[in-house]
């Protein structure tokens, strides 16, 4: 472990919504992540930060169920969900938006969210018309309005600007009515205005569900999140409140040192 210095833990009253226990991932011989143990409290925003290549996306993929870990466990509300297929994570209320924009390119914006909302039902009828479920369309349109895409409903997803596609992906993720939303660098590649709008959206979302946000730009999240988890070279470097992290000597050395 890089840090031998004990980190003062913020008092966590409620049981964690998600826990990573000794999570690790090896790609061949290369260990992209090892031995990461973190609890994520219910409610608010927890940010995962770290320089490029720190293993944030790898960690994100493990806790979101996109990739099975090589070692360790993932608990959701105390239940071991390690190795379950991705759709089971979704059904349990864990939604995610990937670092690389990940929508349904040749479907309309409305259909992107409608088909996502439809997935909440375990049974997908084979011979009833889609139009027999108007509540799904209404829900899709309401969500798209909330993320600022109410005027783009009939566009194909691929025709949207980059920032709009990211917002669309968040609407797609929200369609499943998740209790935990995981976002991997939602502002990657965005202009300053787009970034600001996205951060506003993130803040609004945190009022309705628990958010875990991966971000490498530390400044963006400092004022926003309740807790931070710092990864460095595939390991947990520190965790705590924004103040803890600002004061953490190791973090200052490897991370802030460069930008501050």
């Amino acid at each position: 472990m890089v840090s031998g210095i004990p980190v003062p833990r913020a008092p966590v009253a409620a049981p964690p919504i998600l826990s990573a226990q000794g999570l690790g991932k090896a790609f061949g011989k290369f260990r992209a992540l090892s031995g990461v143990t973190v609890d994520f409290p219910e409610g608010g925003i927890t940010a995962i930060i770290g320089p490029n290549g720190a293993g944030k996306s790898t960690f994100f993929n493990l806790i979101s169920g996109a990739v099975p870990p090589s070692e360790g466990r993932v608990l959701f509300r105390g239940r071991d969900i390690t190795g379950l297929p991705p759709h089971r994570f979704a059904r349990m209320g864990i939604a995610k938006s990937f670092q690389i924009t990940n929508v349904f390119p040749h479907l309309t914006v409305r259909e992107n969210v409608r088909v996502a909302a439809q997935a909440r039902n375990v049974r997908v009828p084979l011979f009833r018309d889609r139009s027999a479920f108007p509540e799904l369309t209404e829900r899709a349109e309401a969500l798209l309005g909330a993320v600022g895409l109410g005027h783009r409903l009939d566009r194909l997803a691929r025709e949207l600007a980059h920032g709009e596609q990211r917002a669309l992906e968040i609407a797609v993720a929200l369609a499943a009515e998740p209790s935990l939303l995981l976002l991997d660098e939602p502002t990657a590649g965005m202009s300053p205005e787009e970034t600001r709008a996205m951060m506003d959206l993130v803040q609004r979302l945190a009022e309705t569900c628990t958010l875990i946000l991966v971000e490498h730009k530390m400044k963006l999240v400092m004022g926003l999140c309740r807790r931070l988890v710092v990864l460095h070279q595939g390991q947990l470097l520190a965790e705590g409140t924004p103040d803890d992290i600002r004061a953490h000597p190791e973090v200052r050395r490897v991370y802030l040192g460069k930008s501050a």
């Binding site: 991705p86 929508v103 349904f104 997908v124 797609v172």
Partner: peptide, 26 residues
Amino acid sequence: RLLSSPFGAALEAIRENENRAQACGY
């Protein structure tokens, strides 16, 4: 009928983006 059903919609989602469809819960 199959194509216009919710199942048909899900198939198109799978064609468009299998990982995303899975992440949606399909």
